[in-house]
């Protein structure tokens, strides 16, 4: 250990602001660099799972009928207006 105390390590003979801000920002950027793909991968996997689950359900499932009713409502509105 080069420094005598915690305070000395923080101050670094007046250069502490520069050294610590450089290290701080760099560590932050590197952490973001690692976290972003990690979160993205989990999100993509989750989205795919829900997407597959939905499309795997038989056509008479709730999702399908809802989409259908939405469409038919629009269709019935159009001629009246």
């Amino acid at each position: 250990m080069y420094f005598d105390s915690f305070q000395a390590a923080m101050a670094m003979d007046g250069h502490g602001v520069f050294v610590w801000s450089a290290y701080g920002i760099s560590v932050l950027v590197l952490a973001l660099l690692l976290l972003r793909p990690w979160r993205q991968e989990r999100r993509v996997l989750r989205e795919l799972a829900t997407q597959w689950k939905r499309s795997n359900q038989p056509p008479r499932g709730t999702n399908h009928s809802q989409a259908n009713s939405g469409l038919s409502r629009e269709g019935s509105d159009a001629p009246g207006s």
Binding site: M12, D13, H15, F18, V19, Y23, S26
Partner: peptide
């Protein structure tokens, strides 16, 4: 690099940035 190296005789402690730069 931050704690266990001696400072540069010309630049002092600021040279420690070299370890990421």
């Amino acid at each position: 690099g931050l704690f266990f190296t001696a400072p540069d005789f010309r630049q002092g402690n600021s040279y420690r940035i070299i370890y990421i730069h």
